[in-house]
Design a protein around this nucleic acid. Structure first.
Lengths: 130, 130
DNA sequence: GGAAGTGCCTACATTTTTGTAAGTATACCG
DNA sequence: CGGTATACTTACAAAAATGTAGGCACTTCC
């Protein structure tokens, strides 16, 4: 045995398989689920925002990390960056169509966590069957 | 201005807010979206598995990381660990009810990535509007 | 005129994460 | 009897992520 049945079923017709170490989907996943990536997607799902706005509403991000995260999401094709050539700089970030689709799933997960948090904290340490 | 409107709306009635740095939901999110956490949830969504099975079907995990990840998910109440007191050891991992709910969202995201991968790769570098 | 705001980047230091290898107790297989 | 498998843990080392501080080229506000 090298792989359980359901893993095979996951492979089925899909063009990618996250369970495989070398699959490019792994990297996309890691960008979307990175510490700040998830939160950026979440905020941008609410509409276009400037760099400093993002920085302010995402508690705890440093400028460095925010910039890095935005670049990753941009090169992945999830975020659209529009820079107005003025000074002081004015840059707007928004989600692409792809970004909105991904963002919807991220929002679903985070929203679930936010509402389920009481249950999660109650379950801590208390062994619970499925 | 300290926070955009939609961020306020996210706060609404929810018992938690991921955008706040100190919110406990942040940690839960980070466990579920950690490098291996996501994949473990995904596999366990397919049913009960032993440690070594998980290790084999999740490409690239080390024993150390798998053990650590499972422990985190267990203390968060997502994973149920059942150890049969025999030698050699026999341990089974499965998802709790909470874990299944969270896992469903994770599966939706990863499944989307797997199917959208061609589009994502095509979009790389090509600026695309929403 | 001085301070604050804008959207970054870069160098450097620190922290965190992750990998590697070895050890454990025992049973089963040939 | 030697090798393999099980489910881990621990110590040590290497790699990656992250934070901090400073700079830039201006403009607007007080």
């Amino acid at each position: 045995m090298t792989m359980p049945d359901h893993a095979q079923s996951l492979l089925s017709q899909l063009p990618a398989n996250v369970l495989a170490a070398e699959c490019p989907s792994r990297q996309v996943l890691s960008h979307l689920t990175s510490r700040w990536g998830t939160l950026v997607m979440l905020v941008l799902l609410g509409g276009t925002h400037r760099f400093s706005e993002l920085r302010r509403c995402i508690g705890g991000v440093s400028e460095r990390m925010l910039a890095q995260t935005l670049q990753q999401l941009e090169t992945d094709g999830f975020v659209l960056r529009i820079a107005h050539e003025v000074v002081p700089p004015h840059v707007e970030y928004s989600l692409t169509k792809l970004g909105q689709e991904a963002g919807a799933h991220i929002a679903a997960l985070t929203h679930w966590i936010e509402t389920a948090l009481p249950r999660i904290q109650a379950a801590k340490g208390v062994p619970e069957p499925a």
